[in-house]
């Protein structure tokens, strides 16, 4: 049963990854990308890493892929035009691809994994008794891997600064909210109260 699901998820993942680059419409590409992410999450569940699976769906499908979708829809890129040169370069590209394929086949056919190497990862991944894998990640993320965690934080900081440096512009003539000016407004200067007699309405001079 597990094997069946493994082949199902991995086949769909590979096929949809291929469609990401093969689809004509970029919106379809992003949708195939989402399909690939969901199947990768399925593979994580088969491994027993349900926390990572949920994280993949929440972060990649929920945030990243949706952001991609926004970008693709907002950018007016004519992808059909970008593809113009494709046929022109096909012969040389195909030739290089063929050579690479032959080399890969030659390498893989002599491929052998030493039995010692197989033991190492299995030994270090012994299942922890009695705790969920969310807890297992939590136990090492801020202790054993604190250095990597902080480094990743700095990398995200660079990304944030970079986005601001390269895109934020002070434009003239844009109406901005000025909170201190709003708070400093005095009701006496901006509000006038009128007694409106019934059936007469507001006098012409006020309205």
């Amino acid at each position: 049963m597990t094997a069946l699901f493994f082949y199902l998820f991995s086949t769909v993942a590979v096929a949809s990854a291929f469609m990401v680059i093969a689809a004509r419409n970029p919106v379809h590409s992003v949708l195939y990308l989402i399909l690939a992410f969901v199947n990768a999450a399925g593979l994580f569940i088969l491994l027993g890493a349900e926390f990572l699976a949920m994280l993949l769906v929440v972060v990649y499908v929920g945030a990243v892929a949706v952001l991609f979708l926004f970008v693709v829809m907002m950018l007016d890129v004519d992808f059909a035009e970008l593809r113009q040169g494709f046929l022109q370069y096909l012969p040389i590209g195909g030739l290089i691809g063929l050579i690479f394929l032959v080399e890969l086949v030659l390498v893989v056919s002599t491929w052998s994994i030493s039995p010692d190497a197989l033991q190492v990862p299995l030994a270090s991944n012994a299942p922890l008794e009695g705790i969920t894998n969310t807890e297992a990640i939590g136990r090492v993320l801020y202790t054993r891997y604190a250095y990597f965690f902080q480094a990743a934080g700095l990398i995200l900081l660079v990304a944030m600064i970079g986005a601001i440096v390269l895109t934020l512009r002070e434009r003239a003539g844009v109406k901005r909210q000025d909170i201190s000016a709003q708070n400093a407004r005095d009701p006496k200067e901006v509000l006038t109260l009128h007694d409106v007699p019934s059936r007469k309405g507001l006098p012409e001079s006020v309205s």
Partner: peptide, 19 residues
């Protein structure tokens, strides 16, 4: 650690190339 250091270095470099 190698990869994270490299990425921190390069990401900042990409931004200052386009500054």
């Amino acid at each position: 650690a190698l990869y994270l250091g490299l990425e921190l270095q390069s990401l900042a470099a990409y931004v200052i190339a386009a500054i």
